[in-house]
Design a protein around this nucleic acid. Sequence first.
DNA 1: ATGTGC
Length: 483
Amino acid sequence: MQKVTKEHIEKLTDYLWEIPTSFRKDMLVPARILASEQILDDIIEDRSLNQLVNVATLPGIRKASLVMPDVHEGYGFPIGGVAATSYPDGAISPGGIGYDINCGVRLLTSSLKMKDIKEDLEALGKELYAKIPSGMGKGGQIRVFSEQMDEVLHRGAEWGVKQGYGHKDDLAYIESKGRLAWADPSCVSQMAKNRGTDQLGTIGSGNHFVEVDVVEEIYDNESAKAYGLHKNQIVVMIHTGSRGLGHQVATDYIRIMINAMQKYGIKLPDRELACVPFNSEEGQNYFKAMCAAANYAWCNRQIISWEVRNAWETLFGKEKGQLRLMYDVAHNIAKVEDHVINGKNERVIVHRKGATRAFGPNFEELPDAYIAVGQPVIIPGSMGTCSYVLAGTTKSYDITFGSCCHGAGRRLSRTAAKKQVNAPVLKEQLRERGIFIEAGSFKGIAEEAPIAYKDVNSVVDTVNISGIAKKVAKIKPLVVVKG
DNA sequence: ATGTGC
């Protein structure tokens, strides 16, 4: 298959590039790349642009196949990708959502400032590491079986709150209120449920983490005030997803769809794009299972928040130890949404894989305090760099179906990173810079080294300048807990 | 990402 080169790419604006449908005759829509020229040059040799073109052949795809500036290669679809298909008969594809269904990020804000915790960073890292189970295959203390598991899958974060893992007020500050109503536990295999039995309240491994950060800079006073963020404030970021349960849901339905595709006459350039019509039996079952796994992930992040709050209270006491949920976003999910395409309102199935929803002001789901400034977008950087809070914009609807990037984006494969990085040395270097890492393995540290990632500042500048999200605050890591 | 692999 013909490889994408710079010659095939047309410049639409300084930050938007297009591979037209003339590039390959199976493309149904153009492929668009949101990137600075520097970022584009860095990814041009990557397989991710060919994956982006492949996505443009997805049955029922509308307007354009899109990637954000943090794009990199994924299973079938690129990570950092957005694809909207027509409702109700366009494709739904598990590869367009990812194995870690509802991988996402939440941010908790504290009433503490840098000066309040400067001396406690190491103890804080040890306490968090002790309270929050992490690592590959790791389970926690909580067990959910049969009816209780079904309740978790039905009710998401709400189940956690009901069991005492958090405040009722938390729910308003979660995307979709931490619950997708289409979830149907009967569409989730017993194997998936078994894998999820003891994994609520656990981080997992890879790029997942719990991190204590300090707000280093505020860019937009009005939004920062609405979100309750201010300079020198200590905040906590949680990044994880649906663990083994979501992974098993993806595995189960990818196999089902590979087998069902011929029946619907679907031919694709890569079998990793396996998909079926959204309104087919297989499509509906997957969607209901995906919603259930998404609910599990929201419940997981809810329970981890409870663990973090416990650690916080242990160290700082009841009065100073309060943590408020600022927001929780999903970045591996598909949603049915209404968007304007060619001037007409259309219902579409938006696949976001390593992409964050970034809805602008006046979106009715937002809590009252946020409605005038738009939805918070949380962008974790890599371990030793920094992260960002942005605000969604109305402009994002026109360009990216109301989506934004989800992180810095990998630059090196895990294997390449392991070859280049001496993890014990890196850990010590970060410590000298005042960043304390508590990790279960040196392998994990090497794979997640800052050098393995793109520069988060240039990724965020791209989305900020192109107007799909607005910079609100920059935060800097102090303590990182990883698997 | 994942009881790291058909």
